[in-house]
Each structure stands twice: as structure tokens, then as C-alpha cells.
Design a protein around this nucleic acid. Structure first.
Length: 554
RNA sequence: UGGGUUAUGGUGUAACGGUAGCACAACAGAUUUUGAUUCUGUUUGUCUAGGUUCGAACCCUGGUAACCCAACCA
């Protein structure tokens, strides 16, 4: 029985187009400007554009929208390509808007010849002044009535570098009184004597977004050009150019960008976080960038599942971060290797265990038998988690307390007898008795315990730095709060500890994902070395005990 | 005082004039050598006021709210 999943509005449009034979196959594109790193918002667009051509016949291009030489760089081109590949998508053609600069120039000349474009010599301020406001119409500038021949001459000279930056522009001649501000004679070319990362110094005039994006779509025969809601007003202009230029009619469709709670998603804000050192860099594991999430330990699958579950529509939204975490845990639960690590150690001494003796115990590596087992050493002195002992047990406490018995995972059942304290009242060690016949896998003790905890043999443990990350902001929507969004940064978003890890973890590789039993999912940080091992906590496990405790405290 | 877009549980998304469904979250229970996973169940919703209709989340009219538009950025 196949589960009927309803279509989103874009899929409906496409199915209608395909059914009506408007197209036999579709072409979409992912069009980043190479001026920064990709983030979760881009991931939505990537999953959407590439996902559509996975579902329907057709393909997706990667096109760099590189029409502003002063902000763009090949460094970003490379990181963008890496991120898309990591997410698991393949583009058909790698293209650049700058590949079309000659064609775009010809298009501009066509417009001039049709009397639909003119060279403006007013300054930016003067142009803005004549533009009017959303409620008042604009006024025609003097240059608007220039003759075709003069415009042609001036535009050629612009291209030839005869004019300084900002002294001339080319504008489309539409309607200065139009209710859509974008239709009030928009700029289509500006002068920038700047080095372009691909075309070098060949050009000193560059097309604006509105005279580059739709034209590139058209040149590539993009059937469905998908962008975010704020481009809705641009659609009218997009169509106007296609109509006047009589070129392939691509169509623009808009969807609402996805926002995630407890983070920010604008390039500008992310840049501030990096430049003002609130985070360690673009790939800081707390960043919602693809590179940050990759370093944090997110899987591509979890991000794709998330985008799929969230769906696509046209309304404002803030998606619960917990949905992303759910997708992450779901994937990791099925794939992560199991291991034991103690993050906040407390010494446990087994009074009746022989001094110097070591046992080799077997423990499961993964969620099912296919992953096999590994050997873990057991001895008289162990590390357990400090939070697994309570001097005065709480109600429904399953773990260690004086007189309480607990199973050590894959090992024995132990009873806590006494504990030591230092002069500050801090517990320094607990002393236990173990039951030899309760050995895991061959338990004949008949003892039933409620709790099972993780542990590491003190004599065999390795040490590692563990970075425990939490949400970057204290509030759901930092951008909508009063004041600066940076006022809402969570000061405890990173907690670094020295942990004791089981010896098998020494063999961890950068691609491994681990579940440290009862503590969460972890992966090796890119800066980890054999001498100085560093793990990043990707996400915690769900914790019904802590959740319950929080509720009773409140 | 203009134009555009959108309103469905706490969150996201379906229902295309005919039973308001799904997922996350929350809560409760069962299983569990991870208080995880898994399984079962519960709570919570059509912005508002009218109208059309046997029947309206959906169609019509009037409100209301949110977001976008006045960069030589994309």
C-alpha cells in the first residue's frame, strides 16, 4: 500500500504543466551568489530545486549569480560546491551569470534600439529623489528623452571605460508612476571598475540582478525559476524583460523562506557573529551554516528528511528546532556506533573485586546485531557519571544511592555501600559490592534492578576533550526581539569538558558517528589529533527523567 | 495615504464545496541491560463579522493582523 503524500503548490504546478504537455521535462536551478557560506536556508532551496528534478523528469543547474565583482570570490564558489555535494545532490551544469555578460550586453543594446532603455547621468541620490515613494509617483528624469543614437553611443562608451563609477547607468524605460516601485525605470547596468573573479578586467559595467537573473534563466531554458517571497515584486519586471527581449519564457515562482527557532538565518547576521567573534568561524558547530552543521555531526540524510517533512508553502514560519533534532536523532539512532564515555567523572571502587584483575567484556556496537560486538575492559576502579549517584535519592530514582543496586551496562550488578566526601562536602568516590553471578549475558543472580548505567574502567580509560554545544540563542526568534539580536546570544552555548572514554574510541575516524550511551550523539572534531582527541556533541538523547524533574521543580 | 503576499492546534503542513488529517512538541501507559529506541493512547486548531449553500477551512462581502516593496545588493 503506497502512502499518498499530498503535493505542495509547486509540485501541483509542475504536474499540471507536465500533464498539459506545456513541458516534457523541467529545468530548475540553484542560483547562489558566491559571496558567503551556505546555510540551512539555502539547504531548503537546494532540496527543493534538486528534489523536484529527482521526482520529475528534468535536471537542475548550479548557477553562480556573480554579477557584483566587489563582493564575490572563488573561495565561496568552492565551499558552495562542496556543501551541495555533501548534501547529496548533483547538478547537471555548473554555470555562471558572468558567462552570459556578452549576451546580456547585446540584450541591453536591443532594449536601447527599441527605445526601451536609456543612459542616465543622474547620481544615485538624484535618481532616488525622482523615484517617488510607495504612495507617491515618481518623476521622469531629463535623460529619459535621449535619442536612441545618443544612448547607443553613451552605452558603448560606458562599456569602454570612459566614465567613472557612479557617473552613468543604463535604465529600462517603463513607467515612473507605476505602483510597483521596481517598474519605475529600474537600473539595469552600472559602472564598476573592479576585478571580477572570473572575467577579470574585461568588463567595467555589470548588469543588475533584475537584468541578469531572468536572462540567465531564459538562456538556460529554466522552466521553473524558484525563489523566495521577497522577490514577488520582481516578477513583473522579470516578465517585462522576457517579453520585450522576446526570449525563452522562464517563469518565476516564490515560496516562503524557512526560519528555524533559536537561531538566525541571514547572511548579514551570521557574518556579524563571525566577525565579532561570538563564534569561532563560519564552520563553528553552533552556526546554522552547512559547514557548521557538518562539523557538528549532522548527517546529510537528516537535513534532507527535515526539508521534506517541513514542506513548502507561502506563509511566514518559524520551524521548531526540535523537528530538526528529531530528524537527526532518527538517522543517528539507526546508524551511530555505540560506545561509553564519562563526561563528568566520579570514582567507583568495587570493594570485593580483586586488585589488578582485568576482565574483557563484550558490548554491542550498534542498534542491531549486524554491528557486532566489541571488547571493553573492566576492573576494580571505574569512572561513572557524577549525576548517576545521589546521596539522598529522589523519588523514582533508578540509579546509585547508598544501599541501591544498579547494573553497569554489559557488566555486573553493583550495590552501593558507602561514599567518600571531601572537606567541601563534595562526593569523591563511592564504594560498591559486585555480584559475580550477575555478569551480563549469563546472569543467574536473580537480582532485578531498574537502572543500567554506563561506565569506563579507570585504569584503561583514555581522555578526550568534549565540546558540548547548546542552542546559540536564548529566545525563539532573536530577530524579532527588542534591540540587537546579539543581546540574546546564549552565554552557555558551549561547555567544554575533559572526559574519560573507553579505549576502543581511540580508533575513531572523522566520518564515524557515535552514540555515547545515555549521553547523546558525538563525532570527532576536525581539529582532533591522536594526541589531543576532541569530540563534538551533535545532539543529546531525549531525556524523560530530566524533563520530568524540570516539571516538578517549576 | 499606494501596491503586493499570507492567515488551519504550541510548531510545520494537508484537506481542491461533503468525516478538519499527518508529523514534531507536550502528557500518560507498556516493553527495555541506554529513564534512549520501539509500541499504545491523550490533550490542543480553521484570524474576525456577515452572506451564499442541504452542506463552507475552502465561494462572496466587510474588517483585522503579519510580512514584503522607495540599494548603482542579490
Amino acid at each position: 500500500m503506497s502512502e499518498e503524500k499530498s503535493l505542495n503548490f509547486l509540485e501541483e504546478i509542475i504536474e499540471t504543466d507536465l500533464a498539459g504537455r506545456k513541458y516534457d521535462s523541467i529545468v530548475t536551478r540553484f542560483p547562489p551568489e558566491p559571496n558567503g557560506y551556505l546555510h540551512m536556508g539555502h539547504a531548503t532551496s537546494i532540496c527543493l530545486n534538486f528534489g523536484l528534478t529527482k521526482k520529475y523528469p528534468g535536471y537542475t543547474n548550479l548557477r553562480f549569480d556573480d554579477t557584483n565583482p566587489v563582493t564575490e570570490d572563488t573561495e565561496f564558489v568552492e565551499s558552495i560546491k562542496e556543501d551541495i555535494k555533501w548534501l547529496g545532490f548533483e547538478w547537471k551544469h555548473e554555470l555562471y551569470a558572468s558567462d552570459y555578460f556578452d549576451t546580456m550586453y547585446e540584450y541591453a543594446v536591443t532594449l536601447i534600439n527599441k527605445g526601451l532603455a536609456y543612459v542616465e547621468d543622474a547620481t544615485a541620490e538624484e535618481i532616488a529623489k525622482l523615484k517617488g515613494t510607495p504612495t507617491e509617483p515618481g518623476k521622469n528624469s531629463a535623460a529619459r528623452s535621449r535619442l536612441v543614437a545618443e544612448n547607443l553611443d553613451l552605452f558603448t562608451r560606458m562599456k569602454n571605460g570612459e566614465f567613472a563609477d557612479g557617473t552613468k547607468t543604463l535604465r529600462a524605460k517603463i513607467d515612473m508612476a507605476h505602483t510597483n516601485m521596481l517598474m519605475r525605470d529600474p537600473l539595469i547596468y552600472r559602472i564598476k571598475h573592479a576585478h571580477h573573479h572570473r572575467t577579470g578586467n574585461k568588463w567595467c559595467i555589470y548588469p543588475m540582478y533584475d537584468f541578469a537573473h531572468g536572462q540567465s534563466d531564459s538562456i538556460e531554458n529554466i522552466t521553473h525559476s524558484i525563489c523566495t517571497l521577497e522577490f514577488i515584486p520582481h516578477r513583473e519586471l522579470y516578465n517585462w524583460f522576457i517579453d520585450k527581449l522576446e526570449i525563452y519564457p522562464s517563469h518565476q515562482y516564490e515560496f516562503a523562506r524557512r526560519n528555524l527557532s533559536y537561531t538566525v538565518m541571514s547572511k548579514r547576521k551570521l557574518k556579524q557573529l563571525v566577525e565579532e567573534k561570538h563564534v569561532a568561524g563560519w564552520d563553528d558547530p553552533r552556526m546554522p551554516t552547512i559547514s557548521g552543521m557538518r562539523r557538528r555531526g549532522f548527517t546529510p540524510q537528516s537535513i534532507r528528511t527535515f526539508c521534506d517533512k517541513v514542506g513548502i508553502a507561502k506563509r511566514e514560519n518559524i520551524i521548531d528546532f526540535s523537528l530538526l533534532e528529531f530528524c537527526l536523532r532518527e538517522d543517528l539512532n539507526n546508524t551511530a556506533l555505540r560506545a561509553m564515555a564519562v563526561l563528568d567523572p566520579l570514582k567507583l571502587i568495587i570493594s570485593n573485586y580483586e586488585n589488578g584483575k582485568t576482565e574483557e567484556l563484550q558490548s554491542e556496537n550498534g542498534p542491531d546485531e549486524a554491528y557486532g560486538t566489541r571488547t571493553i575492559p573492566f576492573s576494580k576502579e571505574l569512572w561513572i557519571e557524577r549525576e548517576d549517584f545521589m546521596e539522598v535519592p529522589a523519588k523514582k530514582w533508578f540509579r546509585f544511592a547508598p544501599g541501591a543496586s544498579v547494573r553497569l551496562k554489559s557488566a555486573y550488578i553493583l550495590r552501593c555501600d558507602t561514599f567518600d566526601k571531601d572537606e567541601n562536602g563534595k562526593v569523591t568516590a563511592i564504594h560498591c559490592t559486585y555480584f559475580p553471578e550477575s555478569k551480563s549475558g549469563s546472569d543467574t543472580s536473580g537480582i532485578a534492578v531498574k537502572g543500567t548505567i554506563h561506565w569506563v574502567s579507570a585504569a584503561h580509560a583514555a581522555t578526550a576533550q568534549v565540546n558540548m554545544y547548546d542552542r546559540l540563542f536564548k529566545v525563539e526568534n532573536p530577530s524579532s526581539e527588542d534591540g540587537d539580536f546579539k543581546d540574546y546570544i546564549n552565554p552557555d552555548s558551549l561547555h567544554v569538558v575533559q572526559a574519560y572514554i573507553e579505549p576502543s574510541l581511540l580508533k575513531a575516524t572523522p566520518t564515524d558517528r557515535f552514540q555515547f550511551l545515555r549521553k547523546g550523539y558525538f563525532c570527532l572534531d576536525k581539529e582532533s589529533t591522536p594526541e589531543h582527541i576532541i569530540f563534538n556533541r551533535t545532539v543529546t538523547l531525549k531525556d524523560a527523567w530530566m524533563a520530568g524533574k524540570k516539571n516538578t521543580n517549576e
